[in-house]
Every structure is written in C-alpha cells, then in structure tokens.
C-alpha cells in the first residue's frame, strides 16, 4: 500500500507525542514533581527518559559532572586571619603547557635579595584565547589552578582575567569537585606524613648513630 511507510513513520512521532502526556501523568500518580526538581532533571538525562527532554535553563540546570571544565581559576586558601594564601608558586608549568599560550605570569622577586619568591605578582588568562583544554589543571604540581564549572560569564566586553578575577577559594573548589578535592587532600596529608616520618627517621638515625658507635666501640 502506498503511504504505508509514511504512516509507520508518523506512528513513531505520534508515540513520542503521546509519551509526553503519559509520562507526566505517571509522575503525578507517583506523587513526584517532574519539573524543576533535581530528580526530574536526572531522570530526563537517563536512559529511561521518555516524552519531554527539555531542561528548562535557567529555571533548572543540567547536573554537571565533577570533571566538567570551563575556564581555569586559581585556588587560594582562606587563612584564619583573613589573609589569602595563594597556592600558585609561579613555576610556569601551566604557561608552558598552554596550547594557545593564553597564560601570562609575572614571577615575584624578593625586593631585598632579588631572588624569585614562590608567588606570582601578576597572573593573566586571556579568556578569549583559552581553549578550555584543561592541561594547566592537569599538569599543575601544586593543585593551584583548576577548571571551573561556572559557565554564566557572558559579558559586554572582551574577557581578559587578572588575578583578582581568577582567584577563588579552596572552599569553592571543594564544593564543585568534592571527589578530586578529597583525593588531593589525602595525597597532601600522606605526603606531609611521609615527610614527617622521614624527618623522624632521620632524627632517630642521628640519635641512634651514637649508641651504635658506642656499641661498636664496646664490641671491639
């Protein structure tokens, strides 16, 4: 029959159209809210999604996975006295691995000795060159530069970010990437403990060096 194929195809669209309503009714019967809830968004992004697929940004947002990356930011620790401890040591690795070379760092020098100080004086990222590749965060040995989740940064002018704009607290970092933060924190603690243990061992070795010497002396 001519037209059978078209009808078959229309059947698919009809089913899809119909599912929108059956799905809505099913959610109502289950007593759950399908829209503007995290559960609803999650369901609409899963394999079981049927019917309406739209996530109505800005009222509801997609759930960003932890690894999601947008533009980079610099992490600082909030000190008890309110001062900011910038983790960046201005080692320059991020500037070296940046594929479009959009990171600019001015290294600090000690005003007295002229020797480099592990802190940047200035730090720029040209956001209109940055390609969001994540290399800077991946290769930073100090966990000082990380990729942000914030994407609502459209503006009326060109975007060149300086230190002021780039610095975000480690609390914020912890909130967007809890698993990564926990892993890095554990590594830091382990490293500190290893260092401590090493120092303790060295001290113990220095301590025990004398007795062994004495023992050796008594043995002979």
């Amino acid at each position: 029959m001519y037209g059978k194929g078209i009808l078959k195809g229309l059947g698919v669209t009809w089913k899809r159209f119909w599912e929108t309503y059956t799905e809505d009714i099913a959610w109502v019967l289950r007593g759950k809210k399908r829209y503007f809830t995290e559960e609803g968004v999650k369901h609409r992004s899963s394999k079981d999604q049927k019917g309406i697929f739209t996530v109505q940004y800005p009222e509801e947002k997609l759930i960003q996975p932890e690894e999601a990356r947008y533009l980079p930011f610099l992490v600082y620790n909030e000190m008890p006295d309110g001062k900011r401890e910038v983790l960046c040591t201005s080692c320059g690795i991020c500037a070296k691995v940046c594929p479009p070379q959009c990171i600019w760092i001015v290294r600090s020098n000690d005003p007295v000795t002229g020797r480099p100080v592990p802190e940047p004086t200035e730090f720029y990222i040209d956001a209109d060159i940055c390609m969001n590749c994540g290399f800077c965060a991946e290769y930073c040995p100090f966990d000082a530069i990380k990729m942000d989740h914030d994407f609502e940064i459209a503006s009326y002018g060109r975007n060149v970010f300086n230190m002021e704009k780039l610095l975000k607290s480690s609390e914020y970092y912890k909130s967007i990437r809890p698993v990564n933060y926990a892993r890095e924190e554990a590594a830091r603690i382990a490293e500190a403990e290893a260092k401590k243990a090493k120092e303790a061992a060295r001290a113990a070795a220095a301590q025990s060096a004398k007795p062994t010497g004495a023992e050796a002396a008594t043995a002979t």
Binding site: S90, G92, A95, K96, V97, C98, P99, Q101, I103, W104, I105, V106, R107, P116, E122, Y124, D126, V160, N162
Partner: peptide
Amino acid sequence: TKPFKSRWPQGQF
C-alpha cells in the same frame, strides 16, 4: 616554537 618566552617568568600581558 612554543612555549613562548614572553609568557613566563616576566609575563607582562
């Protein structure tokens, strides 16, 4: 070749 020398350590933007 990259990395460019102007980016670090005196990376005045």
